[in-house]
Amino acid sequence: MKNIIDIEIVVPNQTRYLSMIGKIGENVARELDRFKGDREALAHHLNVVLTEGVVNAIKHANAADPNKEIKIRISASNQEICIKIYDSGQGFDLTNVPDPSFESDQLGEKGRGIFIIRSLMDSVEYKKNNGGNVLEMKKKLG
């Protein structure tokens, strides 16, 4: 499966770069001209999952240390889009987050980011990688 687009971004561990990273995701979606679905909705969803994934890395994995870095890789083919977000910190437990769609957790203030990522992507994994971790999110486009 040949990637049409393969982008790697490295930014400091700071939330000020969220808007820029989200916009790159939107622009990638708009370039996928063989995608038959709603391209503007896909653009929004990529902006959202990139924002949520990077915020998780900044706050929970890299413990908000502004001297650390975050690496993001966006790969897109006609069949699939894959986003990887690398952190260099302690990580977090992807399975141990409340589900805000349950009524009891609906007014909680945590766990909504991971819930949103899981809702918008087809697969989400968080794995150890070279002393840090990688959040891997995939979405089928076919």
Binding site: V48, T51, E52, V55, L107, E109, R112, G113, I116
Partner: peptide
């Protein structure tokens, strides 16, 4: 134009 879970969380906190 764009809101994330942190933005939603602040609104939930205000609501509560």
């Amino acid at each position: 134009r764009f809101i994330d879970s942190s933005g939603l969380g602040v609104l939930v906190s205000g609501f509560k």
